Amino acid sequence: MLKKVDITDFVLENDKRKSHIQLFYQVFGQPIGDDPIVLVNHALTGNSNVSGEKGWWKNVIDYDHIIDLNKYTVIAFNIPGNDFERKNELALDYKEVSTLDIAKLFWLGLEKIKIKSLFALIGGSLGGGISWEMAVLHPNRVQKLIPIATHYFASDWVIANVGIQDDILNQSQNPVAVARKHAMLLYRTPQSINQRFKNAKEGNIYTVNDWLSYHGILLTDRFSLNAYKQMNYLLGTINVVKNDFNLNAFLKKAKLEVYAININSDLLFQNDLEEYEILQEDNENFKHYIIDSIHGHDAFLMEYQQLNDILKQIF
């Protein structure tokens, strides 16, 4: 069931002011009280519905699963503007909002429901970037940070692809569907697609193109154009290291534990794995894991055995 908190007089990173923002969220597992709190930040096309019959991460979060709802209180906010059940349009120019703004909003939302600290802060892709932003804002309020299939800043490659998506969304006759088809080729890999479709046809139509069209139609049915513009733009704003912020120095001082999980075939977040190894060598509280998969960025939604094996060490 969706719940709501109201945030008033919010100042954006660009110094513009928003008088009222409705922040919707869901709670799973144990009621808010004495049990450890896990905050889950959703990805670009995700939402707060992380568990249950239609939960997009039910293979990870459920009763007697890795994130066990018998033990934890799991909370998930909807990123304002994500259009989940058409309940939270942000009513701003989509290019005015950053992941830092969303991180600040989520902390304000937690304060509204009387939560001061988190046992774990976890998110994949865009949600992982927002998790980095939240942890850097208030490291003493987070015990375990778990960013998955993401990075702590948007690379030029990510920014360039966000720009192409934005062009499609503003210029195409069928913007959401076409943008989604392009995005799917970033979320998977040539090896994954070639292995799956093998030049198969149904009549005169290649099966791979039929699959892309299906994903385009599916997203069009549940995502407004404004929502897709907003979520896509946010992806390119991830950046905790602006203004000469030194992540290595931060990790040395911070008490939070970081468990970064990446995918070796990720075409979207092609991170410098050597950099992660250096961070791990320099900081006892930083652990780095790699999911081995041919499926690319979406492997965090596909390789559940590997992901759960990693998460089992954390939870």
Rank of each mutant, 00 (worst) to 15 (best):
residue 169 L to I: 01
residue 176 V to L: 07
residue 135 A to P: 02
residue 93 D to I: 02
residue 298 D to C: 07
residue 190 P to Q: 00
residue 246 N to K: 10
residue 299 A to E: 01
residue 256 L to P: 01
residue 110 L to T: 12
residue 259 Y to V: 08
residue 298 D to F: 09
residue 297 H to M: 06
residue 120 A to D: 08
residue 72 Y to Q: 09
residue 158 V to D: 03
residue 283 N to G: 05
residue 63 Y to F: 15
residue 45 T to P: 04
residue 241 V to E: 09
residue 180 R to P: 11
residue 307 L to D: 02
residue 149 A to E: 07
residue 92 L to D: 01
residue 124 G to W: 14
residue 196 R to D: 08
residue 72 Y to H: 11
residue 208 V to R: 12
residue 169 L to F: 06
residue 263 I to Y: 01
residue 8 T to I: 00
residue 98 S to P: 06
residue 252 K to W: 05
residue 221 D to K: 15
residue 45 T to Q: 03
residue 255 K to F: 00
residue 210 D to H: 12
residue 219 L to P: 03
residue 49 N to H: 11
residue 42 H to G: 04
residue 233 Y to T: 00
residue 98 S to N: 06
residue 275 E to P: 00
residue 61 I to M: 02
residue 235 L to S: 07
residue 55 G to Q: 04
residue 31 P to G: 14
residue 78 N to P: 11
residue 104 K to P: 03
residue 224 S to L: 09
residue 221 D to E: 14
residue 299 A to H: 02
residue 58 K to N: 14
residue 288 H to P: 04
residue 19 S to A: 13
residue 260 A to I: 00
residue 233 Y to C: 00
residue 199 N to C: 06
residue 46 G to S: 11
residue 285 N to F: 04
residue 46 G to T: 12
residue 9 D to S: 10
residue 87 K to A: 13
residue 104 K to N: 13
residue 214 Y to F: 15
residue 178 V to Q: 15
residue 143 Q to C: 01
residue 116 K to W: 10
residue 37 I to L: 07
residue 197 F to V: 03
residue 81 G to V: 02
residue 125 S to C: 13
residue 36 P to S: 09
residue 129 G to M: 06
residue 139 P to R: 01
residue 56 W to V: 07
residue 142 V to M: 03
residue 23 L to V: 05
residue 180 R to T: 13
residue 313 Q to P: 02
residue 175 P to A: 02
residue 194 N to C: 00
residue 33 G to S: 15
residue 66 I to R: 04
residue 7 I to A: 08
residue 26 Q to L: 04
residue 232 N to R: 03
residue 234 L to R: 00
residue 312 K to D: 12
residue 224 S to Y: 10
residue 222 R to P: 02
residue 204 N to A: 08
residue 140 N to Q: 15
residue 77 F to W: 15
residue 280 Q to N: 05
residue 211 W to E: 11
residue 25 Y to P: 07
residue 287 K to G: 05
residue 79 I to V: 13
residue 256 L to H: 13
residue 313 Q to N: 13
residue 146 I to E: 08
residue 151 H to W: 14
residue 260 A to K: 12
residue 279 L to R: 02
residue 83 D to C: 01
residue 253 K to P: 01
residue 244 D to E: 14
residue 233 Y to K: 06
residue 14 N to K: 01
residue 288 H to N: 14
residue 184 M to K: 15
residue 187 Y to V: 04
residue 23 L to E: 05
residue 62 D to N: 15
residue 25 Y to N: 05
residue 210 D to E: 09
residue 285 N to W: 07
